[in-house]
């Protein structure tokens, strides 16, 4: 994508937790940009600050940045109504992310009510169809759904405002492998249909390799390196930490024959 324009531009983003005297930088001077229609990965181990970046972008945690521009709008100080329409987030644990005492339909109607979306009902049905949920589930509560169904509801809810950017925070790590495959496929389909841009946080290199074109590798709040997934997979990593991460994932993860083939 040579002609693509960046839709997410982040420069020198810093998030500090704790009070005076006992401060800890969870994210320390991070810069990256993501092109329209691209899937960009943020990979790292727990505590690397990858999820904190998503929360900083959405304003859920306080932060400082030299540049923070999403879909053309500067969001360092304020986020307008428009921001919440264009940017949505999908969380790791779909059970936690859904209101425990609202039915599926009410979960979908909530963003429509808050944002005053016209034709909410039609849009709700369209969103359900888009994520492949049956109408018979409309009046169930989250606890009456399977993990995969819950994540589909969460994605459908995110689609209600017709967003341009989805922030995906480990969207499949709480799901079974076979369900993960369904959700990843769904995300790919939605991207093809709607030209969505994904910023995806994950610890799973397999998922990154499957979903992303480019990825940033994070450690202790810092981006160690940003590289294409082809390079990541085929030994193009330049940093010691990235290599260690790949080696560890392969040692007890990857299909051995598959890995052997790739090396040959």
């Amino acid at each position: 994508m040579n002609t693509a324009t960046p839709i997410i531009e982040i420069e020198d983003l810093t998030v500090t937790f704790g009070v005076d005297g006992d401060e800890r930088r969870a994210v320390d001077g991070v810069s990256f940009s993501v092109n329209r229609g691209e899937t960009f990965g943020l990979v790292g181990e727990s505590g690397s600050g990858k999820s904190t970046i998503l929360r900083a972008i959405t304003g859920l945690v306080a932060n400082e940045a030299k540049v923070m521009r999403l879909a053309g709008a500067d969001i360092r100080k304020t986020r307008g109504k428009d921001f919440y329409r264009k940017v949505q987030m999908v969380f790791q644990d779909p059970y936690e992310a859904l209101h425990p005492r609202h039915t599926v339909w009410r979960q979908l109607m909530e963003p429509a009510r808050i944002q005053n979306i016209q034709g909410a009902e039609a849009r709700g049905h369209a969103a359900l169809d888009a994520v492949g949920l049956s109408r018979s589930l409309l009046w169930r509560y989250p606890h009456q759904l399977s993990g995969g169904q819950r994540q589909r509801v969460a994605i459908a809810r995110a689609l209600m405002s017709d967003p341009e950017i989805l922030l995906l925070d480990e969207p499949t790590s709480a799901l079974d492998v076979s369900v993960q495959a369904e959700i990843l496929n769904l995300l790919c389909d939605l991207q093809d249909e709607r030209g969505l841009t994904y910023l995806m946080v994950t610890h799973d290199l397999g998922v990154v390799a499957h979903m992303c074109k480019r990825t940033a590798v994070m450690q202790a709040g810092v981006i160690v390196e940003t590289l294409g997934v082809d390079a990541l997979v085929h030994g193009g990593a330049t940093q010691e930490y990235t290599r260690k991460l790949i080696a560890a994932s392969e040692a007890y993860g990857e299909d051995p024959h598959d890995a052997a083939q790739a090396r040959a």
Partner: peptide
């Protein structure tokens, strides 16, 4: 089959 693989990318993951 449903598991994403690092080395042999596929466009879609086969669904169980």
């Amino acid at each position: 089959d449903a598991m994403p693989r690092i080395h042999t990318p596929r466009k879609r993951l086969p669904v169980l």
